[in-house]
């Protein structure tokens, strides 16, 4: 009885405030507030601070002052930055193409019926599950000029006579990190595309088979167009992640040799934290923004078109 009485009294006391929530505008605000606060605190505020930082001359231990676009002018003339831009596009472009092609191939294989299907599907995800830093260290060992298991194998097979310095040569280093990124990214593509494939009714394939479509035509006219919305979303996610990749390059090459493998994130880190030029590092990070923005907008528009057709 006491409890009932208390809660009744409480509800009476709260009712003016609660009544306010019956107005949809207040209710909407109340419901949105937690998300808005979190996003504001952890995304908008740092972003805003980053913009301010990039417009100042701040260094480690030196507050600095407002300098306008000076940092952006400076990185524009920086040849390492230009290499970085090219590297990032090359790295993202090549890996995405390979991840999509291999992932799709794997997804189609996994979509068949065979013994141990569930176990294989789970194993496929392993590269994706292992923390990137750990798996990258394993790869670093494999690409080590002295201890490389790859060199050893090639040597034993009689394919090479001298050691290949995988991470010491600029082109080979880039190729190496691209290979690792593909290895790590394929499972995500494969599993997501597999989920997409499973939404396509087998009856459609049967109908196409009776209609006279051979396997390749069935893929091209039925599977591919129906998988397109999923594919675009996966590619979008992958592009964003790859474009802003950090761990893999940082662990493997640190951006070397001779800055040949720097991406936006690693170069921004090296300049901002490594050499203490915080403002220039911020400028490089922000330079990623317009590129990513354009890529994302184009893809989102395309996804919308595909989904509404």
């Amino acid at each position: 009885m006491a409890v009932t009485a208390l809660s009744a009294a409480e509800s009476k006391r709260l009712s003016p405030r609660l009544r306010k929530l019956e107005d949809e505008r207040w209710l909407a605000m109340a419901l949105l507030a937690p998300t808005a606060i979190l996003l504001g605190l952890f995304i908008a505020y740092p972003f805003f601070e980053g913009v301010l930082l990039s417009l100042s001359s701040t260094r480690v231990g030196q507050p600095g002052e407002f300098v306008g676009l000076k940092n952006f002018h400076k990185i524009w003339d920086d040849s390492i930055f230009r290499t970085t831009v090219w590297n990032t596009f090359w790295y993202t472009g090549v890996t995405t193409v390979f991840k999509l092609a291999l992932g799709l191939w794997l997804a189609i294989l996994l979509n068949r019926h065979f013994r141990g299907k569930a176990i294989i599907r789970a194993f496929i995800l392993l590269p994706f599950i292992i923390p990137t830093v750990l798996s990258t260290f394993a790869w670093k060992w494999m690409f080590d000029p002295t201890f490389s298991v790859i060199n050893w194998t090639l040597f034993q097979l009689g394919l090479i006579t001298t050691r290949i310095n995988w991470l010491g040569d600029p082109d080979l280093a880039m190729t190496s990190i691209i290979v690792i990124n593909i290895w790590r990214g394929v499972p995500f593509f494969a599993i997501t595309l597999l989920a997409g494939l499973q939404t396509i009714s087998p009856e459609l394939h049967e109908a196409a088979a009776i209609d006279g479509a051979r396997p390749w035509a069935r893929f091209w006219h039925v599977t591919w167009p129906l998988l397109m919305p999923v594919t675009l979303v996966v590619v979008l996610f992958s592009v964003i992640q790859t474009f802003a990749d950090f761990q893999l390059v940082y662990v493997m090459t640190g951006g070397g040799p001779a800055n040949a493998t720097h991406l936006f994130a690693t170069y921004a880190y090296q300049l901002g934290i490594g050499t203490g030029l915080l403002s220039e590092g911020a400028a490089i990070s922000l330079a990623m923004f317009p590129f990513l923005f354009v890529i994302v907008v184009v893809q989102l528009l395309y996804i919308r078109r595909v989904e509404t057709r």
Partner: peptide, 20 residues
């Protein structure tokens, strides 16, 4: 003989129209 070469046509329970 594969389905396409049997000179048959089939109407499916769920129609199996190509949605795109």
């Amino acid at each position: 003989v594969p389905p396409m070469d049997r000179d048959i046509a089939m109407v499916f329970q769920n129609y199996a129209l190509y949605p795109h």
